[in-house]
Design a binder for these strands. Structure first.
Lengths: 133, 133
DNA sequence: CAGGATCCAGTACGATACTG
DNA sequence: CAGTATCGTACTGGATCCTG
């Protein structure tokens, strides 16, 4: 493709002004991310080890779990306690501010579960409506 | 695609048992998705048109906005009212159940914003701690 | 103006192998 | 056990063009 870049103006490369300039949007991404939500929820019950979290969350790869935990730790939501023993032993728990976040997220999660039937019904009538056109 | 499939075992294509078998996890993804959160928040203030939403949310492409709105409509969170005029006029608003979702999400968003300073501070000391090692 | 279709870059994510 | 490093892929999401 475009070997000659004579007129290859890269369409301004997307400003993304809002995402970049708005820190809260990034933080929101972290806590509402696919695995962020579930990790916070899992830690609501108390301290958990790495592999416990893997099993509790279910379906998450080592890589993504480690990455998610680091992001949340960096933001100050999760506390990481490493015990210098062999084999390694690391405990993860929520910080006070992390507990607040988890409450919000967990409350949302519980609400969603309570509404599953309604959503299923809505989807049903949505499909039905498409037929009638 | 795959012309010769003699020994081209695709690494089992990821089971994803949990995601597939758990409808609430999918719904959660929808409302906590990057643009889902912001669309719900934007509609909290009342009915909005497509291009109004684009401006209110900021940084969202037509494609993603349309896609997000459709997903939320399908799940019964958003009501879509199309007026058959030229030029086209479409109004989006929250359903009762969508308002509940928006309250949860919006409350989370406001909480995040109130905690931005704390997170910034946490990141700071996180970086500091890395230096000392 | 609202959105569908298409193309393409970036990255999110998973599998695997390796380290302390 | 708790990660890190590397690689490959699939999907996300943006730009662009097109239609009613």
């Amino acid at each position: 493709m475009g070997v000659s870049n004579e007129s290859k103006v890269p369409p301004m490369a997307a400003p993304d002004v809002n995402v970049a300039s708005c820190p809260s949007r990034l933080i929101l991404e972290h806590v509402t991310s696919r695995w962020g939500v579930l990790v916070l929820a899992a830690l609501t019950d108390g301290t958990r080890r790495f592999s416990e979290l893997r099993r509790t969350v279910g379906g998450v790869s080592e890589k993504m779990l480690a990455q998610t935990l680091q992001t949340l730790e960096r933001d100050g939501f999760v506390h990481r306690q490493a015990h210098p023993v062999i084999p390694p032993h690391v405990d993860y728990s929520l910080t006070p501010i992390g507990e607040e976040a988890a409450r919000q997220v967990w409350s949302l999660a519980r609400w969603v579960e309570s509404r599953v039937p309604d959503v299923m019904a809505a989807r049903d009538s949505y499909e039905k409506a498409k037929q009638g056109r």
